[in-house]
Design a binder for these strands. Structure first.
Lengths: 369, 369
DNA sequence: TTGTAGGCGTTATCAG
DNA sequence: CTGATAACGCCTACAA
């Protein structure tokens, strides 16, 4: 019985009650609970609980008394206790890898903003490599989150575990082939094809490709899209090297391409913008290659720096804002409806012309779009 | 009594027990609890609990039985229930503003990594403007976090509320003057002075300053440091304009300085790197100003792009990695020891020479460091 | 080493 | 509208 632990409800004025309580709480190093508020306000504990539940039926007068007592004691409901019984924590797990890729911070910022707007808090799980996701999932189960947004490649079994635990899942920016999973993504394979198409249309024939790490499905899809398209067009096989999505990889990648090819390629496609910028800077400042005069460079993502005056990179924009919006919407509706249906929302990338790739055939001086 | 709700412990083989249970749980849409595991394993609930508490005394055999049953049922302890009684959630709040400032994502990545390494999860609170911090604190109280790392300006009262609630707090990269608060920071005022010192030593006399928003204490300290130093040296008053820490503000700021000054200043100090890069690009590409030949440009933070070949910005590095390490250490030790003591760990900024500012007097061709 | 029983702080149910 | 009372799932003396 909790009542035996708290002082008897001596009625000697509301203010002194609050003061007395504060002192007692401090002395015993206890937390302020709804029982304390109830005692000070002279109502039952359940009445206090109802006052903090929107839309519950409480009379004006008790509501006022309770709120006054609560304010006096600095009372705030305990979310852990609440979620224990309601089976809802209002916390959402966001699993994301913190690589050098500038794309992730931008996505995270958008996701956090959108989820906050919907009253969900974000429990953040970051990892160095996508392979670390397995360890992380264990923590996700523990923390009783209402759902998860995962920006990492999940195995078949991992997806099934989400289902088994009935935990709403939205996969962000990852294409899990062969699985019916809620996901929000950009068609990376198509992006790769698109870039190859635009560049070959301008007459580029010999390509270099600085792909992202093989562990990233986004990287492999972009690379495959570009390679397949080049192959279909009967162009010479591109020189493909691998980078780590960071700035330094762009320069290293170009260096390796030049070594293996023995000459400057017509165009270099990089697996993301950051590598493209590294490649571009290295070409211009270290090798004095004229871009786009002699060689074209293009990337993916349209991260902020790609748009800066020094670069104006030719790239494919991922509509991050809309993707985050879609992911937050999808997840909240899943949570609200206990929905099981799987929806895949695919966004089209937007081509950003920029000025680092020649996009018209040589000798074509027309200004036509 | 929970036992009346679960099937009687008929002993008919461990495997069928698990199967029977799984079916029952699914049917009733119940969660797997330690009671279920206990029943399947044929032990008491507390035995199960002990198996999941590191360093508890359990015999090898029961441990094995329990773990087998747990695995069969996909049991994972419920963190909410655990934190209710242990009064420890292993969750830390990180409050940070997601502005265009590239510094924050980098800091967040480091903080998350360091806290994860210490077994703490990160509950992320982002805000558009630092002024929104008040609303956010309400949520922080609710979620029973073990502590908080706040990268925003807190008022006197807000700090006191942390104390009243006995919630360990580490203020990150903010100088709360007049308060004894645990904090990890870089001396921004001194940074401003240092930059002014180095630039004036090279003979620059007329300065322009693109300061960050007045709502940011970091911005005002950097500005004041630079202005005070210039004043002490008896140099002409700098033209001070205000930006929002984003790329576009750098160009706008320079434009405004030129308008108000009527000529090109000797040097422009920008409140952070991103604005400095905006200013630099605008000067070079739009105005064809020779940097650093005609005008010097410098920033603060040493964010990644400042180091790219196109820029090689003169700036002051904040040792983010060490600061995150210090913040995580400070907070965990506060949590562990219930410590009340206030410690302020101030890191010195590191000067990055770069190549966008002339750092030697005109006519001085010496190569001395 | 193991089991029993009480409590953590809340919400939900159901009489009054 | 209000107040008892029973969960929610776990940890932790305490006794065996």
């Amino acid at each position: 019985m909790r009542k035996t632990k708290t002082p008897p409800p001596v009625d000697n004025g509301a203010d002194s009650k609050a003061a007395e309580y504060k002192a007692a709480l401090l002395r015993e190093n206890r937390r302020v609970t709804s029982y304390d508020v109830a005692m000070v306000a002279g109502v039952s504990q359940s009445a206090v609980s109802r006052c903090f539940k929107p839309g519950a039926s409480v009379s004006k007068s008790t509501y006022a008394r309770v709120m006054k007592a609560a304010a006096g004691l600095d009372y705030i409901p305990n979310a852990a206790a609440r979620s224990l019984i309601t089976r809802r924590s209002n916390i959402v797990a966001v699993v994301i890898s913190h690589t050098a890729n500038l794309y992730y911070p931008e996505a995270l910022a958008e996701l956090s903003a959108q989820l906050t707007r919907r009253g969900k808090r974000v429990l953040l799980f970051t990892m160095q490599h996508e392979a670390d996701v397995e360890q992380i999932l264990g923590d996700v189960w523990q923390y009783q989150v209402d759902g998860a947004i995962v920006a990492a490649a999940l195995s078949e079994e991992q997806v099934q575990e989400f289902e088994r635990r009935r935990l709403p899942l939205v996969v962000f920016n990852r294409n899990l082939r062969g699985r019916t999973v809620n996901s929000v993504l950009c068609d990376q394979y198509e992006s790769g094809r698109l870039l190859a198409t635009r560049l070959t249309a301008a007459g580029h024939r010999q390509f270099g490709i600085v792909a992202g790490p093989d562990t990233s499905t986004v990287a492999t899809e972009r690379r495959n899209g570009a390679c397949d398209k080049l192959h279909e067009l009967g162009l010479p096989a591109p020189v493909v090297v691998t980078g780590q999505f960071d700035y330094a990889s762009g320069a290293r990648g170009l260096r390796e391409i030049l070594d293996r090819l023995g000459r400057i390629p017509d165009a270099v496609i990089c697996g993301n913008d950051v590598m493209a910028l590294g490649c571009l800077d290295y070409a211009r400042h270290e090798l004095s290659i004229d871009v786009p005069g002699t060689m074209s460079v293009a990337g993916f993502d349209a991260v902020e720096p790609s748009n800066w005056l020094s670069y104006n990179l030719t790239t494919l924009r991922q509509p991050i804002h809309n993707m985050a919006l879609a992911a937050a919407d999808l997840l909240t509706s899943l949570i609200e409806t206990d929905g099981r249906l799987a929806e895949k929302r695919t966004f089209a990338p937007q081509f950003v012309e920029g000025a680092t790739a020649r996009l018209r055939p040589l000798g074509d001086d027309s200004l036509a779009a």
